[in-house]
Write a protein that binds this DNA or RNA. Structure first.
Length: 248
DNA sequence: AGCCTTTGACCAGCG
DNA sequence: TCGCTGGTCAAAGGC
């Protein structure tokens, strides 16, 4: 059912947004990252892809590329769930530290049961992540028109995708950007977790009309909302800090 | 046997 | 129209 709507709507990438998950940006301390990167050699069979970010979802890498703005390669992941078209781009430094994560889309399903990778992920998901995020400073940004900006006013809007950012984010090794649209200055200083329908009226309406049921859930609240509440706030704060730092 | 990662090639958008 | 860049595909290989 979900896919139907999604397929019909070209909104594939434009409509999504949402869940911001923080990724454990770390090194190989926790092993989290280790799995991801170290995975190359193969280490964890069952949890094979615990990788990139323990956000509770299963991801499959489908590409990697060296982008211009960043010195490090960017990896492309897709949610492995049948009807889920969520994708994410992860940029990480040579040492495995995640410098940037961009989510594109919203999951139309709940997180996989904790019997798999989720176990690892959920285990220290938000809570740990928040901390980790703080430590190494990794930020997540969501791509899409309407966005649930998790990051508040501190969010730094990056225009384009490469442009001038090289100095800033790279340096700080972390970037928090809300890739909403671009120069829509309106968005930025806004709210946290507020649906900015204003930005994408068309999309919003589109979604509202049919996505309400499935995508509605996807709007993001469910994702983090259910298992993360307090943590979420905290993470937000972290991000905020992170952003601030970066901004500075 | 199944799923994931890796990697080069291909395609589309933009200046 | 051409070249560049980002994003995706698909084959090959590994666990």
């Amino acid at each position: 059912a979900n896919c139907v709507n999604q397929q019909r709507c070209p909104v594939d990438m434009a409509t999504d947004q949402t869940l911001l998950s923080r990724e454990p940006t770390h090194h190989e301390d926790t092993g989290t990252d280790n799995l991801s990167e170290g995975n190359q050699k193969g280490s964890y069979p069952s949890v094979g892809m615990v990788k990139t970010s323990e956000d509770g979802y299963n991801w499959r890498k489908y590409g990697q590329k060296q982008v211009k703005g960043s010195e490090y390669p960017r990896s492309y992941y897709k949610c492995t769930h049948p009807n889920c078209q969520v994708k994410k781009k992860v940029e990480r430094s040579h040492d495995g530290q995640i410098t940037e994560i961009i989510y594109k889309g919203a999951h139309n399903h709940a997180k996989p049961q904790p019997n798999r990778r989720a176990a690892l992920g959920s285990t220290f998901s938000l809570d740990e992540m928040s901390e980790m995020g703080e430590g190494s400073g990794t930020c997540v940004k969501v791509e899409g028109g309407s966005v649930w900006t998790n990051i508040q006013s501190t969010t730094e809007i990056r225009h384009g995708s490469e442009g001038r950012t090289d100095g800033l984010e790279r340096t700080s090794s972390t970037s928090v950007i809300t890739d909403l649209s671009d120069p829509l200055s309106t968005t930025q200083g806004k709210s946290v977790g507020v649906f900015e329908s204003a930005e994408t009226p068309e999309l919003s309406s589109t979604l509202a009309s049919h996505d309400d049921e499935e995508d509605g859930a996807t709007q993001g609240s469910i994702l983090l909302g259910e298992d993360a509440d307090d943590e979420e706030s905290e993470s937000k704060r972290r991000k905020k800090e992170c952003c601030l730092i970066e901004t500075n």
